[in-house]
């Protein structure tokens, strides 16, 4: 499922990232998100907010829609 379809406060593991859009891929991986990374979805509004390692990131649905996750 896409990160945008996730539920708040659930822990997810990144399964894959869309690789067609190179720009988006670069941005996503620069946040430390790679297949296998664990993240917690904290908010979905006003933007997606998730915690990865010790940082919180806000990202829009466009980028969030390119991250595929599964539950732990």
């Amino acid at each position: 499922m896409r990160l945008t379809d996730g539920k708040i406060n659930n822990i997810y593991i990144v399964e894959s990232i869309e690789i067609v859009d190179k720009d988006a891929l670069n941005k996503i991986s620069s946040m430390g998100i790679l297949p296998g990374t664990e993240l917690i979805l904290l908010q979905k509004k006003p933007t997606l907010v998730f915690k990865v390692y010790n940082s919180r990131f806000a990202i829009d649905n466009f980028l969030g829609g390119k991250i595929y996750v599964r539950t732990l």
């Binding site: 720009d23 941005k27 946040m31 919180r56 990131f57 806000a58 990202i59 466009f62 980028l63």
Partner: peptide, 9 residues
Amino acid sequence: KPATFFMEI
């Protein structure tokens, strides 16, 4: 292209 947003909080 439209703008995208990601930012560390």
